[in-house]
Each structure stands twice: as structure tokens, then as C-alpha cells.
């Protein structure tokens, strides 16, 4: 995360050095864009706070270990789609699940949908790209996650 701060500060310094006028224009654009999208972000935060309360880690932990692989993948991609967590929480959780005997295939479905399918980011995506694109992109992403999970399963010898 720190390299983002360093990059931003460096970029700002170079920009000010080259043209203070353009820099103040850039900051104004940044503020305007941020304010424009704020309502969508608030909607997302409200959704996130409620969904994470309804589906806590323990529930995910409990259901992903299902012996039936089909059920496991289905639940994993469902949880991955409806939750939102940063990578530094998600992967340790996957690591714990792996040690508990959850298959690579199921964890692949979970982590890929988690990163690519955004039901909770729907308000933001819709604000930028419209409902139709948002729906199609998320459906494609869901499909990709399932295919990737199956390929993972084949390579780890978990299918068959």
C-alpha cells in the first residue's frame, strides 16, 4: 500500500514542478470525481456492512468443507460473489481452510469470485458503466471462476 502513497506524492511533486496550474486543475478534477461517485461508495459500504454481518467468516468456514465437491464449488462461488474482503484477509482465510481439508478447487472458486465478481460493488460499477454491462461482466466473471476452479481441480488431481 505504501508504494501508492510514494507514487502519488512523486507524481504530484513532478506535476507541480512542471506546471502548478495543471496540478491544481488535476486536484480539482480529482475532488469533483470523488464527490460524484461518493453516493455509490456509500451504498456499497452499507451493503458490505450488512452482508458481512449476515455471512461472517465462521459460516464460510463451516460450509466450504462440504464433502460433495459440487456443493463445495457452488457454495464457494456464492460466498465469493456476495462478500468482499481485501486479499490480506482472504488468503490467510484460504490458508486456514486448506489446512482444514478444503480442496484447492473449492478455494480457487472462492478466491476468484471474491476478486472478480462484485455483487457488493454493483452500485459503483453501475454508476460508471450502466446496469447491462455490470450484469454481463459479472456473469462472465462468474463463469471464468468456475472454469478456473475446474482446471485447478484437474491439476491438483481433485476431480475424478
Amino acid at each position: 500500500m505504501y508504494y501508492l502513497y510514494i507514487l502519488t506524492i512523486l507524481a504530484l511533486l513532478i506535476s507541480v514542478f512542471k506546471s502548478p496550474d495543471k496540478t491544481s486543475k488535476a486536484v480539482k478534477i480529482a475532488v469533483k470525481k470523488f464527490i460524484n461517485i461518493l453516493p455509490a461508495f456509500l451504498s456499497m459500504l452499507i451493503l458490505v456492512s450488512i452482508i458481512l454481518f449476515l455471512i461472517p467468516d465462521e459460516i464460510i468456514l463451516k460450509y466450504l468443507g462440504d464433502k460433495n465437491k459440487f456443493v463445495g464449488i457452488t457454495l464457494a462461488s456464492f460466498f465469493g460473489s456476495v462478500t468482499l474482503m481485501p486479499g490480506f484477509i482472504a488468503y490467510p482465510l484460504c490458508g486456514i481452510l486448506l489446512k482444514k481439508g478444503v480442496t484447492y478447487m473449492v478455494l480457487s472458486a472462492f478466491s476468484t469470485t471474491l476478486m472478480m465478481v462484485g455483487i457488493l460493488t454493483y452500485p459503483i460499477e453501475k454508476a460508471y458503466f450502466g446496469i447491462k454491462v455490470t450484469l454481463i461482466r459479472n456473469m462472465f466473471s462468474f463463469f471464468i471462476a468456475i472454469v478456473v476452479a475446474l482446471i485447478t481441480g484437474i491439476f491438483f488431481g481433485e476431480i475424478g
Partner: peptide
């Protein structure tokens, strides 16, 4: 939950939007 996710995003978003602003100008 709302608070912790807001903080998480506030750490990133100002930088992201300033970079977007610079990108649009330069």
C-alpha cells in the same frame, strides 16, 4: 463493519483519485 471498511477505502481512494486527476490533465 461500515467503519472499518470506510477506513480501508479512505486509505486508498484519495491517492487513486489524485492519480486519476493527474492522468486526465497530463
Amino acid at each position: 463493519n461500515f467503519y472499518s471498511f470506510s477506513i480501508e477505502m479512505l486509505k486508498l481512494l484519495p491517492c487513486a483519485f489524485i492519480l486519476i486527476g493527474l492522468f486526465e490533465v497530463w
